[in-house]
Design a protein around this nucleic acid. Sequence first.
DNA 1: TTTTAACGATGAACCAGGTTAGGAAAAACG
DNA 2: CGTTTTTCCTAACCTGGTTCATCGTTAAAA
Lengths: 196, 196
Amino acid sequence: MSEFEPLIKHIRKRVDMTDDELAELTSYFNVKKIKKKQFIIQPDFVAKHRNYVVEGAFRAYVIDGKGEEHTIQFAIEDWWISDYNSFIHQQPATMFVVALDNSIVLQLTYEQEQKLKAAGHKYETFFRIMAERSAAYQQRRIISNLTQSAEERYTDFLEKYPLVAQRVPQYALASYLGMTTEFLSKIRNNKVRRKS
Amino acid sequence: MSEFEPLIKHIRKRVDMTDDELAELTSYFNVKKIKKKQFIIQPDFVAKHRNYVVEGAFRAYVIDGKGEEHTIQFAIEDWWISDYNSFIHQQPATMFVVALDNSIVLQLTYEQEQKLKAAGHKYETFFRIMAERSAAYQQRRIISNLTQSAEERYTDFLEKYPLVAQRVPQYALASYLGMTTEFLSKIRNNKVRRKS
DNA sequence: TTTTAACGATGAACCAGGTTAGGAAAAACG
DNA sequence: CGTTTTTCCTAACCTGGTTCATCGTTAAAA
């Protein structure tokens, strides 16, 4: 079984494509092995690829003026990751994207993606759906950050993404949820003062 | 000059279309006048349209468990607004979208949008670009919420969207920026304690 | 196997921003 | 118009979450 099987299933769930179309689509991607702690995107370099995770786990984060890390996105099997803003506008990245484990990704370069989208309406549709889902996902996160307490954000994350929560270090999860590691530790150990 | 002129310019900036294509595209939209304080989207009803603002101003917000409003998005001239998640999945909305002034919008129903996307590759491309921009915009907002203080978020907003800041009530802006009106008032009057 | 570094837990002092409560002024409306 | 409602401001007090410093534990490297 090829490394492309998971991607093929992934796409089939979203758009209706023939075997030929899928074969053409996957031919635009390259398989790449990434070792744990290796960076696939760094600030000031343009994000060259969109990455589909076949195996492993990644974290995208920014560093603010005080030197603090803030996690923007995690990606495990069957997820995509990149510095999206850098990739779609082909401008220097602001994020780091690092492997949390030894991983295998399928990479699509910006140029290949342009060709693919031009090659057929259905391919364009697929990327439109990806972008729409990404926008909807991020809107849910904005709402969660605006409306929920630190504890609620944590318990919600556990419910929605139990697999991710298990695999990423706690400081990374804390920085994703917008709190300090110390506070997350207190929540996890029920040391947060509750009303009543 | 028709109400469609602004939309035509808007689209021309993003994709290359012939006059015929633009004429076909705009034929899928309907002009609608909305009075101040009128709701165009409400929770539990499916968001039927994507709305392009020709004239006026809108606010999209959610109400949390404590009854507090949180502004998700503003839209003035040349912006789009809807409950995006409700619209693309055609599921009940969670947001209110209300007119802040007497307004004119161009509405595209979900069904018309599906037909339009099916009618040509270029139309699909346009919606793909819209979704990508929306995703990139929202990611910037997430980063801003994670990395900046309340005061920084406010001054940044003023710089980036001076026209919006002028036109929306302060409580709406505060709830967009993730702070209370009272605190925003302190910031505006330089009553926030500063270090040194 | 030992050493070192990374990770997580804990507690006390502290602060950014929230709450509560009031009142003034500007819009909206009949 | 005058009246009602909405919006904005001020100020004292409060709290969820941070900061800083310390220590045990686990995992990687040598």
